[in-house]
Simulated scan of single mutants.
Amino acid sequence: MFGSDYYCLVAGLREYALDADTKGFDARAIVAEILDGVSARDAKQVRLLYGYYDCENLAALRAGRAAHNPLGLLTREELAAELKSPKRLPEAVARVVRAYADPEGEDAEQVDTAQRFERALFGAYYAACERAGGDFLRAWSEFDRTLRNIAAAVSARAAGRNVGEAVVGGGDVAEQLQRSSASDFGLRGELPYIDAVIAAVNEEANLVEKERKIDRIRWREAEELAAFDYFDIDAILSYLVRVNLVARWSRLDPAHGREMFARLVEALDGRKLIENKQ
């Protein structure tokens, strides 16, 4: 699909965002508008992006926690139904749900149910993104998993816990996090953001400020991964990643949320997009 196919949709998102500044930021409404405006194939990528939050909510529900991230596409009732008989989850994720529901069943032969449910669930989610996602979604999910793994590994090391139990998924970086004793896990030459993540986790006592620093890394990566995409699905997915960050901070810290929102609106400047594309 050519990038220009979604020109009108992207222009409309800017108008919506400007309007939202006065009516209140509504990330779910933005997602609904995008799902209505993209092809069925691209809608699957949007839903897969938001599958992370569904997994988060699914893990909370199964553990009996009341927490529910409003960015998830499935309601609590729908998630409860998925725990009994998954039909709407990505197949890799559904397999994990079935395996833990029936440890003696066929699906359990393909899933390591000895690990925590949440760890297996997110490992399956990231694997689904790697297989089914487009360029942006594959790159973003790999980055997001790596960033979260680094933060988890640093925290586990500081608390004297087993790093291997905190890391999700496999691959060279995950293995390096588990076996290296170096302060940077021997990854400084491979991951330009690792020092910033380690510093945020180790040196920032204020939890809100720590999250703010890590989300700045996420924002920058989302922009860079779609730096040369303007009106295609990768540009829209990059925009949605930033929408999710704005939504999060609008709840945690309204002032910072408004600051991020202003950056989001500026990034949708149609004239700049056209100039950059030419």
Rank of each mutant, 00 (worst) to 15 (best):
L121N: 00
P86I: 08
Q45W: 00
D215W: 03
V173E: 06
Y6G: 11
A196N: 05
A153D: 12
A81K: 14
K213E: 11
L58H: 03
R216V: 05
L35D: 15
A60P: 00
L121A: 00
R188Q: 06
G3R: 04
G3L: 05
Y239W: 07
A99E: 07
R216F: 04
W249R: 02
G51K: 00
I194Y: 02
R188G: 03
W219L: 06
V201C: 13
E15V: 15
A81T: 09
E224W: 09
V93P: 14
Q45V: 00
R41I: 14
A128C: 02
A81H: 10
G171K: 01
V154M: 15
P86T: 08
L9K: 03
L58M: 08
A153P: 15
V167A: 01
V163C: 03
V246M: 00
S4W: 12
C55D: 04
N206Q: 07
L252M: 15
L9T: 12
A200D: 02
E223F: 10
G3C: 12
A166G: 05
E142R: 13
V31P: 01
A199V: 11
A59V: 05
L89H: 07
W219G: 03
F2A: 12
E259Y: 12
D19F: 14
A27N: 06
G105F: 09
I274P: 01
V93Y: 04
D26G: 04
S180R: 07
A66D: 11
D215L: 02
E15P: 13
L121K: 00
T146D: 13
A132M: 13
D184F: 05
A120D: 00
A222H: 04
P254H: 05
Y53C: 04
G270S: 07
L49C: 02
P70D: 13
A114S: 08
L18D: 09
Q278D: 15
R148E: 15
A127L: 14
A159N: 14
L13A: 11
N206K: 10
R271D: 09
R98A: 06
T146N: 11
C55I: 02
L191M: 02
V38N: 04
V241E: 10
L252A: 06
A255G: 11
G170W: 04
Y6Q: 03
M1S: 14
F25L: 04
R41G: 11
E203Y: 06
W219S: 03
R41S: 12
S180W: 07
W249Q: 03
I34T: 10
